[in-house]
């Protein structure tokens, strides 16, 4: 066999199946909350509203990465290697939103 790669992995919890379904219902519930909130807040103009949706997105991401992608059960070193670089994204978001605001001003100055 050419593929005799050694299999190293962290242990899967014994109740994985129930965890999967629990995560499914959580994701479904959060998506429904997203949609309901969208209509409830339809006439609201506010920055906090965007943050509500972003936070709900991050919570869903936590469950997908943690349970579905098994990250919760991996070694901490692997988790930090993958998750920490995403901090740069937060930095990038902040910079580009500031830049977007300036572009907005310039657009209406002309």
């Amino acid at each position: 066999m050419e593929h005799t790669e050694h299999l190293e992995h962290t242990e899967t919890p014994s109740d994985m199946k129930s965890q999967i379904w629990k995560t499914f219902w959580i994701l479904l519930a959060f998506t429904v909350v997203d949609i309901v909130l969208y209509f409830v807040l339809l006439s609201t103009h506010a920055m906090w509203k965007n943050w509500v949706f972003i936070i709900l997105g991050v919570v869903k991401a936590y469950y997908i990465v943690g349970v579905f992608m098994h990250m919760k059960f991996e070694k901490k070193a692997l988790m930090y290697t993958i998750v920490l670089p995403m901090v740069f994204v937060i930095f990038f978001v902040a910079l580009m939103l500031i830049e977007g605001d300036f572009t907005n001003v310039l657009r209406w100055l002309k």
Partner: peptide
């Protein structure tokens, strides 16, 4: 031993 306890391919 793999430092991350995962195989090369998965890493």
């Amino acid at each position: 031993k793999s430092p991350f306890s995962v195989s090369y391919g998965k890493l």
